[in-house]
Amino acid sequence: MWKWLHPYAKTEQTYFLCQRLFPWFAFLAVIALLTGCVWGLAYAPADYQQGDSARIMYVHVPTAILSMSTYAAMAIAALIGLVWQIRTADMAVAAIAPVGAVVTLLALLTGAAWGKPMWGTWWVWDARLTSELILLFMYLGVWALYHAFDDKQTGGKAAGLMAIVGVVNLPIIHYSVEWWNTLHQGASITKFAKPSIAPEMLWPLLINLFGLAMAIGALALLSLQNEILRREIKRPWVQKLGEQA
């Protein structure tokens, strides 16, 4: 069942797979983000309570949701790296961490920019905001731990373990708004019931969500390619690539 995956344990195969996939991800990301942002920021109706300020959700909600999905992806790579001891998976962890950190930082910054006019404050220490801040620290920790070791084999193992342990934070972030009294409102679309958002506002949001997912994928692919080159610099196939360039 997983036979088709085996060749990609070789860094060379993964490198060229990334190269082939990148244009698709980049293309879909640009198209979707352009459509979603123009639709959401210019054409979607304003909110009945918050007016035009609610439009920041077309940026905030995708970054917030995907900051968690990206972490899950990183943790899966870490699990594969630890259990099957595949070096490429460790490199993927190191490649995804900075991308995820940027997305989380964006979620926090856009959230603060939304909080100021609506709630009346940039930041409160409620459970949702605090757990999202911890997610940022987890990303930075995984990234720093990986680079703290000269021996990347050890670094990959340590970073992978930290990434897996941090998964515990994901359900806490998601359910924080239900378990505790928070200033942050509950979930509008990531729940099993019907979304609490009008369809003409939901569509641009979903398009942006897809577009940002593709953009994160594209960035992670580039980042993984760089990490592979950095670690395999002495291999003949990398030397050959260098000669061609």
């Binding site: 304003a46 009945y48 709630w119 409102q185 979930a187 958002i197």
Partner: peptide, 15 residues
């Protein structure tokens, strides 16, 4: 300090 909390429902004013 007074902070406003809003709910998770978003809809256009007419609706």
């Amino acid at each position: 300090e007074v902070l406003a909390k809003h709910d998770e429902e978003y809809m256009p004013p007419e609706l």
